[in-house]
Amino acid sequence: MQFLFKFYQRITWLSIDVVLGAMAGMLFFSRALRVELDWQEYALLGMAVWCIYTTDHLMDARKLTFHHRKGRHHFHLIYRKPLLVVLGIVGSLGLVWAIVFFGFSRELFFGAGLGVLILVIMLAVRKFGAEQVRLKELSSAVFYVIGISWLPWYEMPEIDYTWTALGLTILYMGLAYLNLIMLSCLDTESDKEAGFVSIATKIPQERLLTNIRNLSISLILCSFLGLLLVNSFYRIYPGLLVIMLLVHFLCFFKTNLSAEQVRMRMEVAFLVPAILLLI
């Protein structure tokens, strides 16, 4: 059992769980927006997400010293050189594959532009993080959902645009934001030790926990209300959001779980939309 835990821990440190969660999220939006995507588009999304997250972790790891002997950032510090090599290979292959698959089309330029914008924002957050700390998690959540949903939105005919689809997108952004501030809260001590700035290092713990509880309940209620109000075609999508939100809420406020166990369960929650493959 300990071996399985350590294996999964390495998977999370390499952001493989985030990649799978992003691909499941794209599936969520492709089904909700009634768009058929090729498997290559899911693979390219996964490669882009891995490159962005790995770049982010490597940039964070540069602030550490070898005295920090635990966690994801220490892993990226120790294996910095091989990860940079793999990052270069995956990034180059992804770019060439995207050009071959999309051609020099608007999809290619929009996707590449979005990736560059996310990297620029990552750098800006590091430069002005202390002054704009509350925007870090919010901007990350917004761009994460834009990243996994823009292609289904782009390929969907305008005639199919609905307020329901927009509402699902906003709720998914709320879920992503909740996930990030929960993770920030779990990492408060290690972030302070390493000198990282986050919403949890700037807002008092008691106040932040209250905000997390209120946001969780609000999102659960909104998703449950959507489950009751939308037509039968859309009903499964707010239902999936309810499940994902409940997993976050119950795991985060369950006191007998370690921070690492809570983190793993919350990341697994983003795989819930993969159920749509069976329907």
Rank of each mutant, 00 (worst) to 15 (best):
W150L: 00
V247D: 10
L180N: 05
S223V: 05
H68A: 14
S190G: 02
T255Y: 14
G113V: 05
I243D: 03
F29K: 01
N231H: 08
V125E: 05
Q9S: 10
A274L: 12
T188P: 11
L250D: 11
L221R: 00
V268H: 13
A194I: 01
E107D: 10
P204S: 12
N256H: 08
S184I: 07
R134N: 03
G88S: 15
W97A: 14
S258C: 08
L246V: 13
F270Q: 10
A269Y: 06
N231D: 03
L45I: 15
A24P: 04
R106V: 07
G111P: 00
V247M: 12
T12Y: 06
A61M: 02
K254L: 13
N231E: 07
S139K: 02
L108W: 14
F3K: 09
Q2L: 08
G25W: 01
W39T: 04
R34F: 03
P273N: 08
D38V: 10
I159S: 11
V35N: 06
F128A: 03
V86S: 08
G25Q: 06
D17V: 07
D38F: 14
I181M: 15
P204Y: 12
I243P: 02
L33K: 00
L240M: 12
I275K: 01
G147V: 09
A98C: 14
W39C: 04
V96A: 15
F249T: 15
L219T: 09
F101S: 15
E206G: 14
L271G: 03
G88I: 05
L228A: 07
I99Q: 12
L84M: 11
C251M: 09
W150S: 00
Y53H: 09
I203E: 14
A274E: 08
N256M: 04
A24G: 07
Q261K: 12
K70L: 11
L219G: 06
T54C: 07
L227A: 06
Y161P: 01
L276M: 13
M266H: 12
L180M: 11
H68F: 12
L123D: 07
G71H: 09
R263Y: 14
L208Y: 06
L225K: 01
W39V: 12
S184C: 07
V116A: 13
V230E: 00
F128D: 03
L276P: 06
Y144R: 00
M122E: 04
C251Y: 13
G113Q: 05
F102R: 04
K63G: 11
A141P: 03
